[in-house]
Design a protein around this nucleic acid. Structure first.
Length: 433
RNA sequence: GGAGAGGUGGCAGAGCUGGUUGAAUGUACCUGACUCGAAAUCAGGCAUACGGUAACCCCGUAUCGGGGGUUCGAAUCCCCCCCUCUCCGCCA
């Protein structure tokens, strides 16, 4: 949610910044709504004030045993108009809210202007891309080759875009997640959290998934009393439950920065991506992710973003996986972000870099929706800045390990840092299950 | 799932036979006085959002779990929902 004050003060400036990301702000519509709102709201409050004053007078008069018919008659006149306005006001406010809640965040001034992925800017490449003296296989062949990856059964159980891991591969997947969480908790100062995987609509609204992106979510309706239905949503990322911990809170200044790490499954219906990445486990309805979330003082958020990005990079460095860091252009950023870095890992079989992490600063965009605040040095409530990043997507990291650590015989060498999590195992080879 | 109790300001806790109550009182916290300093004591302050405004002054509106209703007026009355606690049942 943008600051409505910014729209009132400089709507053309805001519109120009949004245009950079391909969003057309309907300025006339805003001004029309704002004009309506102002008339109705001020008049309503005026009448309410009048009514309240009269009611108070009636109260006092009755206490003294005086006659109140005159004042009662006076209030009756206010009644009709007020009733109409009180019915109309919430409708106008709702319209305004609906208008505001589908406007994306304005990009930070350093964000390169562009329309698509192609305009993203490469910041750096880290690690050495290995050369193989044999024909590389992709993760599907490798996984199926060692007998640990079973899409056929996953399809039987659930359908397309699910995967089933077994044996050493399942353990490697778990090892990756644990290694990531341990690293962030023990070395980067994040507090480990375990969070709900089903959240309510208010939480989804807080981080920006609702109302605009409902089709990307799995909704779980639950029958409540008297025919009412309460919707739960499966989290598309741990960002949702973790960030919403501070929804409707005013946290003390000393508690900043707040840093959390969570390992959760993520559920995405991938409604708009039919036909993309259909082979393998790159794009799934369910995948695990280790997520970093920070709530920080507004002055610190960009420094915090660099820090958070670095924490994600550490994982790739420790795994010795080659990657590059991309700064997303205005047209490729997510709805709520002001600035986003993607980390892309090298996948030999695709002969390209693929996204494995996305680290964003949302500034106050999410905090404003959530009313997530801290008490500043003057003792006044002020909106927090929120950030998050994947560190990393576990499934895609597994893919990267398989492909980058493959051997000529189809076996997979286990990265050094993961061996303690694998009972000391050094290599995954074919096992008859 | 059954039975009962309850949800009020940072916390505790009144009010709930409708009326000058955004809300007593206590406590925590902040400021000042006293003190060499502290404690104790005394005085004062201390919710949030939105609107009027550019404004952290000022004025107004809303908010006593959420929504709806009755009324000139609702924390207080009525209806629906949610949540918490206790006991029983069931259960990983």
């Amino acid at each position: 949610m943008l600051d409505i004050q910014a729209l009132r003060n400089d709507i053309d400036g805001v519109a120009a910044r949004l245009a950079a990301r391909g969003f057309t702000l309907e300025t006339a519509r805003f001004q029309e709504l704002e004009a309506q709102r102002k008339v109705i709201q001020t008049r309503t409050q005026e009448l309410q004030a009048k009514r309240n004053a009269s009611a108070k007078q009636i109260g006092m008069a009755k206490a003294k045993g005086l006659d109140t018919t005159d004042i009662m008659a006076e209030v009756a006149q206010v009644g009709d108009e007020l009733k109409q306005l009180e019915a109309k006001l919430p409708l106008v406010l709702q319209e305004m809210d609906a208008f505001l809640s589908v406007i994306p965040n304005t990009p930070h001034s350093s964000v390169p202007v562009g329309l698509s992925e192609a305009d993203n800017v490469e910041m750096r490449r880290v690690g050495v891309v290995s050369t193989f003296d044999f024909e590389v296989k992709d993760h599907v062949s490798l996984g199926e080759g060692i007998g640990g990856l079973d899409f056929d059964t996953a399809i039987k159980l659930s359908g397309a875009r699910f995967s089933l891991l077994k044996g050493g591969l399942a353990r490697l997947h778990r090892a990756l997640a644990q290694f990531m969480v341990d690293t962030h908790a023990d070395q980067h100062g994040y507090t480990e959290t375990y969070v709900p995987y089903l959240v309510n609509a208010a939480s989804m609204r807080g981080t920006g998934q609702l109302p605009k992106f409902e089709e990307d979510l799995f909704r779980v309706p639950r029958q409540m009393g008297e025919g009412g239905v309460q919707n739960f949503y499966l989290i598309p990322t741990a960002e949702v439950p973790v960030t919403n911990m501070v929804r409707d809170e005013i946290v003390p200044l000393e508690s900043l920065p707040m840093k959390f790490v969570a390992h959760t499954p993520c559920f995405r219906s991938e409604a708009g991506s039919a036909g993309r990445d259909t082979r393998g486990m790159i794009r799934q309805h369910q995948f695990d992710k280790v997520e970093l979330v920070q709530m920080v003082h507004p002055d610190e958020s960009y420094a915090a973003l660099e820090g958070l990005l670095g924490h994600a990079e550490v994982i790739l460095q420790k795994l010795n996986l080659p990657y590059r860091v991309m700064k997303l252009c205005s047209g490729d950023m997510g709805f709520s972000a002001a600035l986003t870095y993607d980390i892309e890992v090298w996948l030999p079989a695709q002969n390209t870099y693929r996204e494995i992490s996305s680290c964003s600063n949302f500034e106050a965009f999410q905090a404003r929706r959530m009313q997530a605040r801290f008490r500043n040095a003057n003792g006044k409530p002020e909106l927090l800045h929120t950030l998050n990043g994947s560190a990393l997507a576990v499934g895609r990291t597994l893919v990267a390990v398989l492909e980058n650590y493959q051997q000529a015989d189809g076996s997979i060498v286990i990265p050094d840092v993961l061996r303690p999590y694998m009972g000391g195992l050094e290599k995954l080879i074919k096992v008859v299950a």
